[in-house]
Simulated scan of single mutants.
Amino acid sequence: MSTNPRYKRVVLKVSGEALREPGSRDNISPQIVQSIASQIREVKELGVELAIVIGGGNIWRGLSASHRGMNRATADYMGMLATVINGLALMSALEDLGISVRVQTAIEMNNVAEPFILRRATRHLELGHVVIFVAGTGNPFFSTDTTAALRANEIGAEVILKATKVDGIYDRDPMLHKDAVRFDHITYGEALSRRLQVMDSTAFSLCMDNRMPIIVLDMNKPDNIRQAVLGAKVGTTVSDKQV
């Protein structure tokens, strides 16, 4: 396979749960964060401009808290702060590997991170910095999936890599059904008609309306992110084109 990347500018969506060791009481596993940072370094070594959107579900889930009686807006703001914690942890691991990082937050906290400014974020990418977007969109009622879709379209990314704990999209839950079938590729229309939960509806609509391809992959396989950037068949691709 060629070592020339297929994509020049990429948004990597990492869930907060991905930072936690399964079965552990610790919200963040330094070893897992270091592993993710190593995978990101491999992508950067290809010359790819990389932005990251990180979730906060390992620390706090606003929607779950609202279902238990907390005000939804307050719960969501707490979730945004959780993403800041995760973003700083990833920043530290990347800097330990010698990678230049800029963290931009949708909620201003000048002692911690830069405010999100589109032109500044784009310039950082052009200069070779990894940009980590935290605090979601800065608004309650929006997920970090929506943040990934929004930021990807704002910065002119060519693809969203959604790093998960499964190796793609299935016709039904592979944890419950051993005969579940994985898709190598699926269109937006097919995903909607089959009611497949690729992303939440707002995020998915943003991607579909702007023809932003999504690759859902297993981040626990160390070389998957790099292979996806190189154009290998990894996980499931969602796009507007039939294959």
Score class of each variant (00 low, 15 high):
Asn139Cys: 08
Thr146Arg: 02
Ala93Val: 11
Ile99Met: 14
Phe116Arg: 12
Arg123Lys: 15
Ser92Cys: 06
Ile99Pro: 12
Arg102Leu: 03
Ala135Phe: 08
Phe116Gln: 01
Val112Ala: 10
Leu161Tyr: 12
Ile107Lys: 05
Thr122Phe: 14
Leu150Phe: 12
Leu118Cys: 03
Val131Gly: 02
His129Arg: 13
Gln104Thr: 01
Gly136Asn: 10
Ile132Tyr: 05
Ala157Ile: 03
Thr83Val: 02
Val112Arg: 03
Arg119Gln: 13
Val103Arg: 03
Asp96Thr: 14
Leu125Ala: 02
Leu94Trp: 11
Gln104His: 09
Asn111Lys: 15
Thr137Ala: 03
Arg123Val: 00
Gly136Val: 13
Met91Ala: 13
Ala148Val: 10
His129Val: 00
Ile107Pro: 04
Pro140Gln: 14
Ala157His: 00
Ile155Ser: 08
Leu127Met: 12
Ala113His: 11
Phe142Ile: 09
Ile155Lys: 05
Lys162Trp: 07
Met91Pro: 00
Leu127Ser: 10
Glu126Gln: 11
Ala148Gln: 07
Ala152Met: 04
Val101Asn: 09
Leu88Lys: 02
Ala152Leu: 05
Ile107His: 05
Gly128Ser: 08
Asn111Gln: 15
Thr164Lys: 11
Gly156Glu: 06
Gly98Trp: 14
Asp145Val: 03
Asp145Ala: 06
Glu114Trp: 10
Thr146Ala: 12
Asn153Gly: 02
Phe141Ala: 06
Gly138Met: 08
Thr83Phe: 07
Val101Tyr: 11
Leu97His: 10
Val112Asp: 01
Glu95Phe: 12
Leu88Ile: 15
Thr122Cys: 11
Val159Leu: 07
Ile160Tyr: 11
Asp145Arg: 03
Arg102Cys: 03
Ile99Leu: 15
Val103Trp: 03
Thr164Val: 09
Thr164Tyr: 14
Ala113Thr: 05
Asp145Lys: 05
Leu90Asn: 13
Glu114Ile: 03
Ser143Pro: 10
Ala106Arg: 06
Ala89Gly: 01
Glu108Ile: 13
Gly136His: 13
Val131Lys: 00
Glu154Val: 01
Phe116Ala: 03
Leu150Trp: 08
Val101Lys: 07
Ser92Val: 14
Pro115Lys: 15
Arg102His: 00
Thr137Glu: 02
Leu118Asp: 05
Leu127Glu: 14
Leu97Ala: 04
Val84Lys: 00
